[in-house]
Simulated scan of single mutants.
Amino acid sequence: MAVPEKIIRIDSLFAELFKKRQWDKRLALHAVFRNWPEVVGAEIAERTAPQVIRGTVLWIAVSDSVWMQQLHLQKQMLLEHINAKVGGSEKISDIRFQIDAALGEEKMVVRSPQPPASPQPVDPEEQKGFERLIGAIVDAELRTRLLALWRKAHR
């Protein structure tokens, strides 16, 4: 069995690999994903999401065409904000937008369930009138079920 010449720490291997492949520069660019609401602000972050960086071009999903147009008009300012927040020497060179309708869906409001209302008594005169109305039905089970349904509807 061969004895290794020198033991190398794994963190130094990763550091060397990152430096050799220049991943540290690329990793700095991707900080925009982690800090999106801080970079663009809450209102824009609600309607957008960074998708991918290809080269130095950032692709952003936008909720609808109106927001896409607005952001396209503010593209230079947005690019400056993004690059100000990105550390490292490499910067985002361009921004491209694409529509993703799922971003624009309204957030569902969860409401607490209302306590059930206490059942109101059925007016006996109205019930008698309905019983006369369904009295012509020959099937007794059908009459019983119709009466139960009517009672439920009139609570």
Score class of each variant (00 low, 15 high):
Q70C: 00
I60T: 01
L73M: 14
K19E: 15
A136F: 01
K75N: 10
V32C: 09
R9A: 13
W150H: 04
K19M: 04
L17K: 09
H72A: 10
L58T: 01
L133P: 01
M77D: 13
F130P: 01
R132D: 12
I44A: 08
E141H: 06
G129N: 12
P121Y: 03
A117Q: 10
L58V: 04
Q70S: 07
K6V: 11
L147P: 01
F130G: 01
W67V: 05
R143S: 02
D24V: 02
H81W: 14
D139E: 12
E141L: 03
K85Y: 08
A117W: 05
R54G: 07
K25S: 13
E141G: 03
F14T: 11
A84V: 02
I60N: 00
L103T: 06
S89M: 09
L149S: 12
Q98F: 12
D11Q: 09
H30M: 15
L146P: 01
P115G: 00
P4Q: 12
Q74S: 12
L17Y: 13
R21P: 00
I7D: 04
K128L: 13
V32Y: 00
A140R: 14
S65M: 06
S112A: 12
F18M: 08
Q70L: 06
S93T: 12
K128N: 10
H81F: 10
Q76A: 15
S12W: 09
V52W: 10
L142Y: 13
E80Y: 06
K20Y: 10
L58I: 03
P124H: 04
I99M: 02
T56D: 11
R96D: 04
E105A: 14
S118D: 07
I134Y: 00
H30P: 03
E38S: 11
L71E: 03
I10E: 04
I44C: 03
D100P: 00
R9P: 05
R132G: 05
V40M: 04
D94T: 02
F33Y: 11
P115V: 08
V39L: 02
H154R: 13
E125C: 01
I82E: 00
V122P: 02
H72R: 13
P50A: 07
A49Q: 10
S65K: 12
E126Y: 05
R21A: 07
I44F: 03
P113C: 09
F33S: 05
M108A: 15
I7K: 10
V109H: 08
F18P: 00
R155I: 12
P37N: 09
